[in-house]
Design a protein around this nucleic acid. Sequence first.
DNA 1: GCAAAATGTCAAG
DNA 2: TTGACCTTTTGCA
Length: 262
Amino acid sequence: MPEGHTLHRLARQLDERFAGRPVAVSSPQGRFEAGAALVDGRRLDEVSAYGKHLLASFGDYVVHVHLGLYGQVSEGHAPAPAPWGALRMRWTNEDWWSDLRGATACEVVTHDEAAAIVARLGPDPLARRPDGARAWRRISRSRAPIGVLLMDQSVIAGVGNVYRAEVLFRQRRSPFDEGRTLSEEEWQLLWADIVGLMRDGVRRGWIVTTRAEDRRRGRVRGEDAHYVYRRAGLACRICGTPVAASVMAARNLFWCPTCQRP
DNA sequence: GCAAAATGTCAAG
DNA sequence: TTGACCTTTTGCA
C-alpha cells in the first residue's frame, strides 16, 4: 500500500512490462474515459516515480497517478480478467495487464505540468542520489514537530504514516521535538535510516522496520513488521511501556513515551 | 448487511 | 483544524 516505496516499485514494474511499445489504455469505470482516449494505443516512453507520484510519459502526454490512501494496482499476465469493481484505468499489451482503482489522482497532464508537480516536492529518499541536505535546510530551521515535518511532502517526498512512526521509534526520537532541536548528526542518522528502510521496502514490496538484532534477542517475533505503528496500548517491544497514540498532521501517530522522550 | 478503518491530500472556514 | 473524496477489506451484528 502506498508510501513512496510502493510507487517506486510500481514504476519500475510498469516500465519493464509496458515501456517501449504501444499500450491499450481504457477506463471501464468511466471516470478516466477522456484521459484514456488521449493516450490509448500510443507508445509508452517511460514510467517514473517521485515521492508518492507516478508519471508515465506517452509522447506529449503524461499520465499522472497518485494513489492517495486507498489507491491500488493489481496486475498479471495477459489475458486480462473481466473488469470488476470500480476500475479507473486498465493498461494492456500482448503480455501484461495492470488495473488501477481508488486513486486520488489519475489524469493526463503536459510535461510542464508534470515538472511542476515534481518541483513542489522535497527530496525523495528513493532517488538515485538522495539529497538529505536539502531536507535538512528546512528541518533545521523549523519550529514544527519532526512528526509533522516527516509527513510534509515538500520537506521529504515519499515518507508516509508507517515510516514516520517507525523511523522515529528506531531513532528514539520524540515526534513532538521541533525540527530545529535535532543536531546535524542526528538528522544524518535519521535520514540514512529513512533511505535504508525505504529501499528495503521497494525490494520487498512491503514495509518491515524491525531490526534483525531485536529478532535475535527475541524482542520481536519473525513476522512482526513494526515497533509502534498500529500498536496503541500494546507493550513496547523494547521497554514494555504501553504504546501511545494520538493524531498529528491529520494522521494517527504512534510512539513509545519511554523510548521516545521529548 | 452495514459501519469503520486504511500506508493521503486538498480546500474551506 | 475539519470535512470531503477515492474504494476495498475487515469486523461485528
